[in-house]
Design a binder for these strands. Structure first.
Lengths: 119, 119
DNA sequence: CCTACATTAAACCTTTTAGTTGAATATATG
DNA sequence: CATATATTCAACTAAAAGGTTTAATGTAGG
């Protein structure tokens, strides 16, 4: 994957219209440009441009059939994005786990102390 | 979380300098603006602006101590981003699993046919 | 007090995003 | 063929991103 691809994927996801387009393609499969544009308050041309950004990120594929263009969702580029984010989250989870272990250990030590005092 | 926050988080991640800054803060903990800027070929002011975008997305926190500002990584906003992406990926995995099951079932049916013919 | 340091603010430039409207292109259909 | 439909292209505007340089602000240290 080219180095700027992750940039393109993240940027493509940084807009509610484009995320909604991907949502729909995921739920309903192939759709035409006109169909995709219908729910939005912007022009068909604006949606056409959004689709171009999604294509640049390889998040949608285009199949031409006569005058109609059928777009479909391609989730493959999400792998790298997910990997990047999860690596950051995994680290945090590890830190939280370590904190929890420390607290549990501390608690156990206090318990031992209490028991020791009782006897 | 406000509706535009996911936009800000995704946009913040759509730049290699900002991702590198988050990487470093994750690995090494707190750092000053000057320290963060050092590895990059751009001006200190450019990095200061990148940090502002990261703060807008709540991905970094700022602690002032005299004339120094210490930045730290806040992974919390990544949750929503990861959730969005994973929901899209989970769907795809499910589809692949379904496809695999269908192929295995088809194969099993062929096996049954072959065995039936032999006997 | 003076000077150096850490950082932001302000002004400016260029490129990209995001949108519009109007024309062009290609394909269906009566 | 004539007309309607589906889509992009081109030109334009406005705003945001990403960068620079030159102040301005605040703090630390002799």
């Amino acid at each position: 994957m080219q180095p700027q691809t992750l940039d393109h994927v993240m940027l493509a996801l940084a807009d509610p219209t484009r995320r909604a387009i991907l949502d729909r393609l995921q739920r309903e499969g192939e759709a035409r440009v006109t169909d995709l544009a219908a729910p939005f308050a912007v022009s068909l041309n604006a949606v056409s441009k959004h689709i171009r950004l999604l294509e640049r990120a390889s998040l949608v594929r285009r199949r031409r059939s006569g005058r109609e263009h059928f777009l479909s969702f391609n989730p493959a580029p999400l792998d790298e994005a997910a990997a990047w984010i999860e690596e950051k989250r995994a680290f945090w989870t590890k830190r939280l786990d370590a904190l929890e272990r420390a607290l549990v250990e501390d608690d156990a030590a206090k318990q031992r102390l209490r028991k020791g005092r009782k006897r």
